[in-house]
Design a protein around this nucleic acid. Sequence first.
DNA 1: CTGAGACTGTCAACCGGTTTACAGTTGGCG
DNA 2: CGCCAACTGTAAACCGGTTGACAGTCTCAG
Lengths: 231, 231
Amino acid sequence: MVDHVLDVLKSCSLLSGLPEAALREVAPLARVRPFQANEVLYQRGEVQSALSVVGAGNVRIGSTNAEGREIMLTLFEPGAWFGDTVFSPGMPRVFGATAHTDGELVEVPGQDYRALLARYPEAYPRTLDMLSRRLWSAISIIEDNALRDMPGRVGRRLLFLAHMHDPQRGPGPVTFKLTREHIANMMGMTRQGVHGVLKALEQRGLIRFSYGRITVPDPDALKAYLDERTG
Amino acid sequence: MVDHVLDVLKSCSLLSGLPEAALREVAPLARVRPFQANEVLYQRGEVQSALSVVGAGNVRIGSTNAEGREIMLTLFEPGAWFGDTVFSPGMPRVFGATAHTDGELVEVPGQDYRALLARYPEAYPRTLDMLSRRLWSAISIIEDNALRDMPGRVGRRLLFLAHMHDPQRGPGPVTFKLTREHIANMMGMTRQGVHGVLKALEQRGLIRFSYGRITVPDPDALKAYLDERTG
DNA sequence: CTGAGACTGTCAACCGGTTTACAGTTGGCG
DNA sequence: CGCCAACTGTAAACCGGTTGACAGTCTCAG
């Protein structure tokens, strides 16, 4: 059991700055939390802080406004971490988390994680780096949303997801299990709007899509097309 | 001279976790860089990393796309810091910085800053907290942009700036020196669109504005109005 | 004081993307 | 194997916000 937790923690990039001995220390303190598709894991506004690592399955990060309109920020795969409030205890969560598929979460209580860092300060630089990169991503999204039109935004986000999906991926094709509606929620668009964009991209051979699935056959080609589209 | 640099460093929230002795160590390594209004301080894409603290004047953070359309992320006041790439050396800057008024920057070379943190590890938690809050802000902006209409977005951003301007402010009025165009650039809107929104907010008595100036007489009232507008 | 340049108000035309509506598919579950 | 719920395609009406254009106003440097 603890061995399994340890494996999950080891797979997490945020924790890879810590020596294995450190991970062994926290593993017993972590909680394994299995989840089913569409289960709400955390709600926006909660103040409790824990570091969550996706052990299996996919998790949607996003929030919903009063009228039920949803915005989805990103989709996390196994090994990803969230719950950035561990670094600012007391702050409410800005976004909620929902299970996208069945899977399992490994949760390290915020206090224990912070205590661990204090005991292994050599891990701090790596931690700052990870957080700073996440900020970088968020700012890129703001920029894309402000400066690009719909095809540009959708294309860029697909590339972003492709990169999250597998940072060291080669040039091969990537497939996402996302409905038109999920994409719409990621982009602040509608189902129909997304449809039009995808159709246009498909006609250029840059993507392929079918029921609940989108494939980018050649991410580099897509990137080249997008870069060319706005200089 | 070094005393002046020290004062600026002390005023910076990011560095306030460090003991004064530590700041005295880096002060001689920092560079003072005076600037004039509209001078370009850093450009998007540069990889050189330094921690910049605003010593005097205002700095716009933003970037420009190929067609010359600009997006402005925020406006920094004295004491604010930027150059988050110090935490991820080698990463290019996502946004550029431009002088909004005359003023002066204090720049600490990235290496020196990182070395200092390593020497005073007790400052790490505060540093993580600051970075994490900045991420929180960025995500809030993404959310606002996706979920709110123009009046909602403009209003929220004004409140955000009011808070940046003076985190411990009382309930009094706040005034910004921003043109309609600057606001438009912050929101991904046009000058004319902003005009309409401001007029609507003014008619409700929530803001007042004149040439190059916007005043929020009662931020709490504005907040209440915005919260009510979308539940 | 005065002029030039930056900022502002306003309006009609336009358009990208939403809304609304409905019919056709797909795939999983009983 | 067949049904139902979720997902998808399509098209017309609509609308918020941009585009473009121009005249008026303010500010500050000289």
